[in-house]
Simulated assay, not measured.
Amino acid sequence: MANEGGRARFHRLRVAAVDRLTDDSVALALAVPPELREAYRFTPGQHLALRRTVDGAEIRRTYSICSTAPAHEAPSSLRVGVRLVDEGAFSTYAHKEIAVGDELEVMTPAGRFTLDPTSDTASGHYAAVVGGSGITPVLSIAGTLLERAPHARFCLIRSDRTTASTMFLEEVADLKDRYPDRFQLVTVLSREDQQAGLASGRLDQERLAALLPALLPVERVAGWYLCGPYGLVQGAERALRALGVRRDRVHEEIFHVDDGPAKERRTVPTPAHSTVTAQLDGRAGTWPVQDGESLLETVLRNRPDAPYACKGGVCGTCRAFLVSGSIRMDRNFALEAEETEAGYVLACQSHPTTEKVELDFDR
């Protein structure tokens, strides 16, 4: 995986193309100069954080890479999809102002919603359930897998409001044309009737539990990739669980975190005074946690280079290992159960419940 064992960093990349996908979405192509290509080598499914400063305030947003990952050489360009969000500080900028030739501050690839096309199971059967802009990382996953694993199969179930709002229509159609026997596409529109295919309506748990076994051999799918709004992903996860799919075969990435509530907070005593010790790039420091701060906010006050992107518990960029002490994590839409069980936390969502907490961002 890109940047494994090394922390993600920002570099300036030139915008090579701005392609309008729908009325409310664009794809940005970013040119990677030769000296930075190894730094931007990525695993299909990873994302990039884009950064800009407005009136002295830093804005970061994460966007998934939709490009196919090169088999051997590091990428000379990267492409991300950006959907316009109401009053979105960065998405509005992307739609109205970014032009070819502009330079953007772009973090090196991060994220664990990935599929390694060179793994032992890559020749198997894979499937994805996506909604809206959730197609973006899955486009990279499916395209790379089908290109590099000649016996692999991929089933894509995608949900969109209307045909006009569907991102990457041409790219998905191209996959169907190139791999007609190995790529299965099922499209559901929630607000528009189709002349053929499935009836319109939302893809909820009940509907998916009936649909999935009719489409493919659920028990033989090596990996399920669920990406999109909170409700869709949670419904698909519950449907798969009801169908007996093992937890380690299901991978989730939430888009539009506002659709999902923070987990109910446990009643845990909070110390009057706490400190956090953080290991970052081989250097450690200890600082007091101010009232109401997350551990990430404490670290950022003293180490502005601490890794983060969304601050919403979604992207996983601020993942750290909890060396000692205990914390309360408000929400987690980024870490797999295996990661939290191993001791990893999201610093942006963590608050101390002991007087001393120690984090390691380097693990």
Rank of each mutant, 00 (worst) to 15 (best):
P269E: 13
P269I: 15
P269C: 11
P271R: 10
A272W: 00
T275I: 10
T275P: 00
V276W: 02
V276F: 01
T277G: 08
T277W: 04
A278T: 12
A278H: 06
Q279I: 08
L280T: 02
L280M: 11
D281M: 08
D281R: 15
A284G: 12
A284P: 01
A284V: 07
G285Q: 10
T286C: 15
V289K: 04
Q290E: 12
E293S: 10
S294P: 05
L295H: 02
L295N: 08
L296D: 03
T298H: 01
T298A: 09
R301Q: 10
R301G: 06
N302Q: 14
P304W: 04
D305S: 15
D305P: 01
D305I: 08
A306D: 02
P307I: 12
Y308N: 08
C310T: 09
C310L: 07
K311E: 07
V314W: 00
V314T: 11
G316Y: 03
T317M: 10
T317K: 03
C318N: 12
A320Y: 03
F321P: 00
L322H: 02
V323G: 05
S324C: 07
G325R: 09
G325V: 12
I327K: 03
R328N: 14
N332F: 09
F333Y: 14
F333I: 03
F333N: 05
L335E: 07
E336F: 10
T340W: 05
E341I: 09
A342H: 08
G343T: 07
L346E: 04
L346P: 00
L346D: 03
L346Q: 06
L346R: 04
Q349G: 07
Q349R: 12
Q349W: 09
